[in-house]
Amino acid sequence: MSIMDTAFDLQQFTSTINKELSKGLPGFDAQKIMAPSLRENALKESNQSIAKDSSVLLLFYPKNGQLYLPFIKRTIGSTNHSGQISLPGGKYEKYDSDRTITAIRETNEELGVDSKKINILGLLTELYIPISNFMVLPVLGYCTQKPDFKISKFEVEELIEMPVLELLSQENVFNFSFKKKNITITAPYFDAKGHKVWGATAMILSEIRAILLRAGLL
């Protein structure tokens, strides 16, 4: 039984994660477990040297005695990722001192989370997204209490709160396929209340899942 099964202890969780991060990251080997079938070819056709810097925030927080993560369903628009389920985050701007600040700022803008209440745990492995030419830095953070979410209706269609144990359970990993330009693409995904969390977001979750498993937290 993990420390997240019953009486969840946030302090113990953050301490354990800090120790695990000091041991090194699982990296690409963990990410690729949830990679869609088109990724390898997409990487060959991309130029990562001109990628735009960005970051996302995995914001852990306690709720109902469990550990949760928030996701957003982006509004339908002109971006490559509109309508998808993702972590809060976005493009690095020149006025951001670093990409950790980018992740905090974007989470504040998209979900209304008070920046001062976000504590940073560390970083995961960068991940390149070919379709949007972003180099994404996943940032790990936490709030000591459930945030007072106030979503930006311009950017966010829906807030999805998921218990970490349920989200990252092996029983919650599925596969689907779809066609794009007459090419059949298959992809694994995590189910989030009926929403498919796949692509880059699923690859990022796959690495934190590997860390939690290594630490005996799942």
Rank of each mutant, 00 (worst) to 15 (best):
I33T: 11
I33C: 05
M34R: 08
P36R: 05
S37A: 09
S37T: 12
S37M: 04
N41P: 05
N41I: 09
L43V: 08
L43S: 09
L43Q: 07
L43G: 10
L43A: 09
K44V: 08
K44D: 05
E45T: 07
S46T: 08
N47W: 02
N47G: 03
S49F: 00
I50K: 11
I50L: 13
A51D: 02
K52L: 10
D53A: 14
D53I: 06
L57Y: 02
L57T: 02
Y61N: 12
P62I: 07
P62V: 03
K63D: 12
K63G: 02
N64W: 02
L67Y: 01
F71N: 08
K73L: 13
R74E: 11
T75D: 06
I76D: 14
G77W: 09
S78Q: 13
S78V: 15
T79M: 07
T79A: 11
T79K: 14
N80L: 14
S82K: 15
Q84L: 14
P88V: 06
P88D: 03
G89R: 05
K94E: 14
K94W: 09
Y95T: 13
Y95R: 09
Y95C: 00
S97P: 03
S97T: 11
T100C: 11
T100W: 02
T102L: 00
A103E: 04
A103I: 02
R105Q: 02
E106G: 02
T107Y: 06
T107I: 04
N108W: 13
G112S: 10
D114W: 10
K116M: 12
K116G: 14
K117V: 09
K117C: 08
K117R: 11
I118C: 04
L121N: 05
L121R: 01
L124C: 02
L124A: 01
T125M: 00
E126K: 06
E126D: 11
L127D: 08
Y128R: 02
Y128C: 01
P130W: 07
I131L: 14
F134Y: 12
